[in-house]
């Protein structure tokens, strides 16, 4: 008991330290490094709270993918010759931002502390109703059934983010290929790694989304693994990024949200938007999860690749 308390207290201290260092870091790259460390520590905190689903998502998206996006942005800034001193904004602005963050923290802490102790919230209700539906992992049940519209919106938000990135493409490169052409020495470490890891990653992604129906896992975690496989294959120079004008690519991007939305609208026949008929619930949720994984993977990978830069 005491050892667990010591571990939790140490973890909290590390999280706070990483957060402060990420905010006050002298250079941008250091701040990004501490942000990634912070994400991994937060994932550990979720494990300690027995929220393994959230931990997986935080480690994959919060620390992993966001870290890659930030490093990409940093390297673009550096290549564009933006000086870091420019980043240090006016002290008044910093003060306002700091106060706003502190106020948010206080409100959140007050809300958590105001919860009556010993109550389980909605957990008993979810457990009770879960039996009527296909999946046995309560998190997946909430994400894809009870609160499905949240997840639907999230998947659409990702797509909109990618559209925003693509909108930055200059007219000359429109419809072209994002990123630089990558070359790896054919007998080098990266070429070997880029061929060895993708099959394992693909199996892992399928496992994660399949496991999601009964244990921690799901479309977002599996989609991030797919995106990582995609990025690795491109970095190792095995395949180039597809041109953003590709119909196949656009279908892959839209398929997840589209299938989700179509099934949701079909649910109107069963009584309400996003209501699944009980006898098909399991199959429908799996169908949504698998197409969503595919689309999330493609969207995340292309978000990292950025806008189109070369002709197809």
């Amino acid at each position: 008991m005491n050892a667990a308390l010591l571990l939790d207290a140490g973890l909290c201290l590390l999280i706070l330290t990483a957060a402060v260092l990420a905010m006050t870091g002298r250079d941008l790259f250091g701040a990004i490094a501490f942000f990634i460390v912070y994400g991994i520590l937060i994932a550990l905190a979720w494990v300690r709270l027995e929220a393994v689903d959230v931990a997986l998502a935080e480690a994959a998206i919060g620390a992993g993918l966001t870290g890659v996006l930030l490093i990409g942005a940093w390297s673009l800034l550096r290549r564009a010759g933006v000086s870091e001193a420019h980043e240090l904004s006016h002290w008044g602005l910093r003060l306002v931002a700091g106060l706003a963050s502190a106020a948010t923290t206080v409100v959140l802490a007050a809300a958590v502390l105001a919860l009556p102790p010993g109550r389980e919230g909605l957990a008993p209700l979810v457990t009770e109703r879960l039996a009527d539906h296909g999946v046995s992992n309560p998190v997946t049940g909430v994400l894809l059934d009870f609160r499905a519209y949240d997840t639907l919106m999230e998947s659409i938000v990702l797509l909109v983010a990618l559209v925003a990135v693509w909108a930055l493409t200059p007219a000359s490169a429109w419809g072209g290929v994002p990123g630089m052409r990558q070359h790896a020495r054919p007998d080098g470490v990266l070429a070997m790694f880029g061929r060895l890891l993708p099959p394992i990653g693909l199996v892992m992604a399928v496992y994660l989304v399949w496991a999601g129906s009964s244990q921690p896992g799901g479309a977002f975690q599996a989609g991030t693994v797919l995106a990582a496989v995609w990025l690795l294959v491109v970095m190792a120079g095995i395949y180039d990024e597809p041109p953003i004008s590709s119909g196949l690519l656009r279908t892959a991007l839209v398929a997840g949200p589209a299938v989700f939305l179509a099934i949701g609208i079909a649910g109107l026949g069963a009584g309400a938007l996003l209501a699944y008929p009980d006898e098909y619930a399991y199959g429908l949720i799996l169908l949504i999860e698998f197409t969503l994984t595919f689309s999330i993977g493609a969207t995340l990978a292309l978000l990292v690749a950025g806008r189109a830069r070369r002709a197809a």
Partner: peptide, 12 residues
């Protein structure tokens, strides 16, 4: 596998 590969890439 990841650590060994990444170490090679950083070194190179």
């Amino acid at each position: 596998l990841a650590a060994a590969s990444v170490a090679q890439l950083i070194a190179r």
